[in-house]
């Protein structure tokens, strides 16, 4: 590896002013933006910039000369983009300037014709698509909703969220992107919708699953309980002798299906004993012989 002095081409006795002048001379020659067609310029410029970073700073240079730090410590984080990466690309930008070759477009030869055609194609280019991100709650993802988003330019956009949307789905609003050029129409707005996780509901395809706590007496005797669904709470009959893990189905309470109709909501019951423990229940269980001999871990 070359020493930073060698990279800049200066003796180790060079003054700060000599160092700066050496750097400027190299930077003028090697800066990637001053060499838009030279892919190797970036690497060479990085090396020079790193060397000057080290030696151009009096304190760092002293420590380097004393052997406290080495040249690798001066390496700059890799820079991602130079101006040339944007200005030279195919995307339209406000700094584009055709005056450097405008005179070539006047002729009637094939070359002028090609230039004029490409200029025209670019002049009537459709606008770019714009991307947005939107978060909605679980219930809205099932029944649908309308959300208003504010664009960077202050305008607003009403986004209709279709019922049954899945997290990560993208909604395309035609013509709501960046304005086009000439006769090219505007681009589209692409809105990626994220469904926020819900503490109660989970989605399984077109179906919805939920865990519902019930009391011991509801489990033993059955009864009517209120169950939340995406469209509001409904009453559901718990059959006599239900158990933890018993799954009941609420037909048509799931997400809308693609071909019409709805999925179901599956309600998984969970028997919950009173807390703190109830002395009356304890007294009953201690005198309940059959309960003591029943072993749910033994396969019948």
């Amino acid at each position: 590896m070359k020493s930073p002095y060698e990279v800049l081409g200066v003796p180790s006795t060079a003054t700060a002013a000599e160092m700066q002048s050496a750097y400027r001379k190299l930077a003028k020659k090697l800066h990637p933006d001053l060499n838009p067609g030279d892919k190797a310029a970036e690497e060479k410029f990085k090396e020079v910039a790193a060397a000057y970073d080290l030696l151009g700073d009096a304190d760092k240079r002293k420590r380097f000369d004393a052997g406290e730090i080495d040249a690798s410590g001066a390496e700059r984080p890799p820079r991602q983009n130079y101006y040339r990466d944007y200005a030279g690309g195919p995307a339209e930008h406000p700094y584009a300037d055709a005056s450097g070759y405008a005179d070539f477009m006047d002729g009637d030869d094939m070359f002028a014709d090609l230039l004029r055609r490409s200029q025209k194609a670019r002049a009537n280019r459709p606008g770019d698509d714009r991307h947005y991100h939107l978060e909605i709650g679980f219930a809205d993802s099932i029944v649908g909703a309308t959300r208003r988003i504010t664009l960077p330019d202050g305008a607003t956009l009403d986004v209709k969220i279709p019922p049954g949307l899945v997290s990560g789905q993208t909604i395309r609003l035609k013509g709501k992107g960046a304005p086009g050029f000439g006769t090219g129409g505007p681009g589209d707005a692409l809105i990626e919708v994220e469904v926020l996780p819900d503490t109660r509901f989970a989605r399984d395809g077109d179906d919805i699953t939920i865990e519902l706590p019930i009391s011991l007496s509801e489990a033993v005797f059955g009864g009517c309980v209120r169950v939340p669904t995406a469209t509001g709470a409904v009453t559901m009959a718990v059959p006599k002798g239900s158990n933890t893990g018993t799954t009941l189905r609420l037909k048509g309470k799931g997400a809308p299906k693609r071909g019409g109709g709805f999925g179901d909501q599956f309600v998984k019951l969970k028997v919950v004993l009173p807390s703190p423990p109830d002395p009356e229940l304890e007294a009953f269980v201690s005198g309940w012989e059959k309960g003591k001999s029943f072993n749910p871990r033994e396969e019948g």
Binding site: D97, A98, Y101, L115
Partner: peptide
């Protein structure tokens, strides 16, 4: 100014 003209020419060349 010159750099933007150069990029304009590079784009025209690429399109050509």
């Amino acid at each position: 100014h010159l750099m933007d003209q150069l990029h304009g020419m590079r784009r025209a060349l690429a399109e050509l």
